[in-house]
């Protein structure tokens, strides 16, 4: 089972949708509430970017690179989430974002480094 490929399309689609819906509830730099998550336009752009990157990675076969990038990025975001919010006075990433970011990072790490399918080598002719 190619977990990196599954990860790229699942999280790619989910983050893209979250980014798009986020603009409906928080189209500007003022913070809005998406379900229970604090978002603003910059946060939505970030969601949209990582989501679209996931879809592109799935379509171009760069799944492992995407999963590894997500693992590092979201691990950093998880740690930063414990700091003063909003981050740099711009993006709110505390509260319930922390467990979501942590889970995203852990699963990305598993998909990117531990469990992925190596491409089958073609037998010599």
């Amino acid at each position: 089972m190619n977990l990196a490929r599954i990860y790229a399309i699942v999280f790619g689609v989910v983050y893209t949708l979250v980014g798009l819906i986020g603009f409906a509830v928080a189209p500007g730099l003022d913070t809005g509430t998406l379900i229970v998550f604090q978002v603003n336009a910059l946060h939505n752009v970030a969601h949209l970017a990582v989501g679209l990157l996931g879809v592109v990675a799935f379509l171009t076969g760069r799944n492992i690179e995407y999963a590894r990038m997500m693992a590092v990025l979201f691990a950093v975001l998880t740690v930063v989430g414990f700091g003063p919010q909003p981050l740099l006075g711009l993006i709110p990433i505390g509260g319930l974002d922390i467990p979501l970011h942590a889970a995203t990072a852990l699963l990305a790490g598993a998909a990117g480094w531990l469990y992925w399918s190596r491409p089958q080598a073609k037998p010599a002719a």
């Binding site: 089972m1 977990l3 599954i6 990860y7 999280f11 989910v14 979501l100 889970a103 598993a110 998909a111």
Partner: peptide, 11 residues
């Protein structure tokens, strides 16, 4: 959290 749970189950 459902996508996270599904991905965790598959992992």
């Amino acid at each position: 959290f459902l996508p996270v749970a599904i991905m965790a189950a598959l992992t």
